[in-house]
Write a protein that binds this DNA or RNA. Structure first.
Lengths: 196, 196
DNA sequence: GCTAGACTATGACGGTCGTTCTAACCAGAG
DNA sequence: CTCTGGTTAGAACGACCGTCATAGTCTAGC
């Protein structure tokens, strides 16, 4: 699923993102990440000298950028199209993995920082959320939504889909995502004036 | 925070729920759960002979019932009151823990099952989500919401709040919860006919 | 061919994991 | 008092953890 990438560094990062999305950060070992990417353990410390923390941070950024790119590609067609792309992405991941994989950004977000200062992976998770919200909110405003309400709706959409993906995994059913999708589509229609 | 309970078994379960909500299930060791509850390691295997899995399952059920009880207490005053209780509960947990704790049910929901058959803790997480949704949906219907839409809105509310709590932890800010809250309140007003 | 530097292979370090076991403790019943 | 049964103390098991170090292999450029 992540073995066709030629660049080993990138392959390790993509594999790490996938494993973190399944098991969480602490529960994923560097040895498993290496094996999952078909790379030797020594290579991980060659490519990522700062160890697990650096690899996790890059994995979160990788996943965050993947979603951001998809949003940037679809949002010009309107907020509803962006929502649909967001939904489709998670729907595919959840179904293809047999309800075993989810969002690596969420997985990192809910792990308690071990010390008082923030681990960079957690900061990267916050940045990913922020970027997704900003992209969505800007599109809502561009389609006539009230600026303040656009921010609220964007937060709600990201949070609701993230939460629903987790619910789908627990229930081993895609139905919650369909229900959430229906309500979020209606909400977008409500806050953006009718077009054409 | 969980040391005032006299019954040691219950104290261990409550402490385990708290730790799981911070670190996730795999990252929380039985030794830490015992120490956190002021109980010896041997006691955990005395009270929970099936080990970590049994303790985790009871912790998830404990947290699920805590929320369900709060919902049952507040929902007779209407869906908006139930939402407020739900929001207040997570708001308190997130703020009191300094953005370190969240929802143990969500934490268990996003951990990949190690084998093909479902661990009981994951089943308990699905049941908790189901119970919360059912309580909320029934209240929405009782206040005039369309039955199908009530189910969709209930799913959205639970998922959105769970996702927002995770977002608040990553951003170390309570603001996402306030934004989500405002939109969910509006949504409830929309689907329940005006009263009085 | 030869050498420099990127990469791999291998094993070791101290530590923690879940779990189990046995010996001790200690309340209350008889 | 003894006895009993719930509870604890403490050590031990093999396995895995993150990390590091060292020796080896490969490939580019000269």
């Amino acid at each position: 699923m992540a073995g066709s990438e030629p660049d080993p560094r990138r392959r390790i990062v993509a594999g790490a993102a996938d494993m973190i999305s399944r098991r969480g950060l602490t529960a994923t070992s560097i040895r498993e990440m290496a094996k999952h990417a078909g790379a030797p353990l020594g290579s991980t410390y060659h490519y990522f000298p700062d160890g697990k923390q650096q690899l996790a941070t890059e994995a979160v950024r990788y996943a965050g950028d993947l979603v951001s790119r998809s949003l940037r590609r679809e949002l010009p067609a309107g907020p509803a199209a962006g929502l649909q792309a967001f939904l489709d992405m998670w729907r595919t991941i959840v179904l293809d993995s047999g309800f075993r994989a989810g969002c690596p950004v969420l997985a990192v977000a809910i792990e308690e920082p071990p010390t008082d200062d923030l681990p960079p992976a957690l900061v990267a998770a916050a940045e990913a959320f922020d970027q997704w919200e900003t992209l969505l909110a800007d599109s809502l405003r561009a389609h006539g939504a009230d600026p303040g309400e656009a921010a609220e709706v964007a937060t709600l959409i990201i949070a609701a889909v993230e939460g629903t993906v987790a619910m789908c995994r627990a229930k081993r059913s895609i139905e919650p995502l369909d229900r959430t999708a229906a309500q979020l589509r209606r909400l977008i229609d409500t806050v953006t004036p009718a077009e054409r």
